[in-house]
Design a protein around this nucleic acid. Structure first.
Length: 292
DNA sequence: CTATAGACCTGACGGC
DNA sequence: TGCCGTCAGGTCTATA
C-alpha cells in the first residue's frame, strides 16, 4: 500500500523519465481517475507542457509544469506509475497513458480505481497537508504539540494527513510498535518521554523503509517494474499469528476505525500508568484484555 | 470545531 | 473445480 516511503520511491524513480521532457500526448482510459478535472481540462493542461520538477508532498506525487500548473497523482491503495518504451503492451488495469517527447510512455496502473490524477493551479490541495515527518522542522516538540491537541485514538490520529503528511496504516503500526505504544491510547495521553520515543520511531521507520524502496504489499510496484523490500523488515504489520520479535508474545490484529491494526499485546500496554505499576503489570494486562 | 462510520472499488485468498 | 464470503485500506462525505 503506497505510503510515504513508497510514494518517495516512485517519485525518485519516475523523475529521470519525465524531468525536462515535453508531454506529447495524453489518453484517459478510465475517466474516474481524473474526475477532479474534466477529461478535456486534464488533457489540455498537460499536452505540450514540459515537466520542470518532480517532487513528493505527503502521499502526492507532484509534477511541476512549464505552464505553471501541477499534475497531482495520488496512488491511494493500488495505483502505480509504470514507465515503458513505446510499442510494448500497456500494463493491465491501465487508467491513464502519458506519452513523452522521446516516445517513453508513463502509465497509471490502478486495479481498484481509487487512485487519482488531477491538474491544478495553486497550492490549495497541498496546503491542507500537515508537516513532512522527515523534515528537520518536524521535531519531537512539534509532534507532541500536534498530538496533545487531540483526544482521539493515537493510531487514527497518526493517519490524519492534515496533522502529519505521509503516514499510512502499515507504518503507523510499525512506529507504534517500535515506540511500545498501544494503538488505542488517547493521542493526548502520552508521557513526554513517549512523545520523544514515538518521534524517533516515526522517523526511523520511514527512513528505513525509503532505503528499502518501499514495501511490496499487495500491488506496489516501482516505475521500472521492480519491487520494494521494506515489508521484510516489518515487525508487526501483516504479521498476525507470528511472535513478537522482542518478547515472543503472539501478535494480535484488531480493527481500529475500520482499519486492520497489528500490535504486540505485551509490549504495547494500554494502561497509561504501566511504568509506575510494574509489579502489577501482569494483572493489569489481563484486565485490559478482557475489557476489549 | 472534533470524532467517527460508511462509501468507494476489485483482486486475492480461504473454506467448503 | 468452482463458488462465495471476507479482507485489504486512503481519503472523501455525511452525520452526531
Amino acid at each position: 500500500m503506497p505510503e510515504l516511503p513508497e510514494v518517495e520511491t516512485v517519485t525518485n524513480e519516475i523523475r529521470p523519465y519525465v524531468l525536462g521532457r515535453c508531454i506529447e500526448d495524453v489518453k484517459v482510459t478510465w475517466p474516474g481517475t481524473v474526475k477532479g478535472n474534466s477529461a478535456e481540462e486534464f488533457i489540455s493542461g498537460l499536452k505540450g507542457q514540459t515537466v520542470v520538477d518532480v517532487r513528493r508532498r505527503g502521499k502526492f506525487i507532484v509534477w511541476e509544469l512549464s505552464n505553471g500548473k501541477r499534475l497531482l497523482t495520488h496512488l491511494k491503495m493500488t495505483g502505480a506509475l509504470i514507465a515503458q518504451e513505446a510499442g510494448i503492451e500497456p500494463p493491465p488495469y491501465n487508467r491513464v497513458e502519458i506519452t513523452l517527447e522521446d516516445g517513453m510512455k508513463i502509465y497509471f496502473r490502478d486495479p481498484r480505481k481509487f487512485g487519482r490524477m488531477r491538474v491544478v493551479e495553486g497550492d490549495a490541495a497541498l496546503d491542507e497537508l500537515g508537516p513532512e515527518p522527515l523534515e528537520p522542522e518536524f521535531t519531537a516538540e512539534v509532534l507532541e504539540s500536534i498530538l496533545k491537541k487531540r483526544k482521539g485514538l493515537i493510531k487514527p490520529t497518526l493517519l490524519d494527513q492534515t496533522l502529519i503528511a505521509g503516514i499510512g496504516n502499515m507504518y503507523a503500526d510499525e512506529a507504534l510498535y517500535e515506540a511500545k505504544i498501544h494503538p488505542l491510547r488517547a493521542a493526548d495521553s502520552l508521557s513526554p518521554a513517549e512523545y520523544r520515543t514515538l518521534h524517533t520511531a516515526i522517523q526511523h521507520i520511514l527512513a528505513t523503509a525509503i532505503k528499502a524502496k518501499g514495501a511490496s504489499i499487495a500491488n506496489y510496484v516501482r516505475p521500472g517494474g521492480e519491487l520494494g523490500h521494506a515489508h521484510f523488515a516489518f515487525k508487526v504489520a501483516h504479521r498476525r499469528g507470528e511472535n513478537c520479535s522482542r518478547c515472543g508474545e503472539a501478535l494480535e490484529r484488531i480493527v481500529v476505525r475500520g482499519r486492520g491494526t497489528y500490535f504486540c499485546p505485551k509490549c504495547q500496554v494500554l494502561n497509561v500508568d504501566s511504568e509506575a505499576e510494574n509489579t502489577k503489570s501482569e494483572t493489569n494486562l489481563k484486565s485490559q484484555d478482557s475489557k476489549r
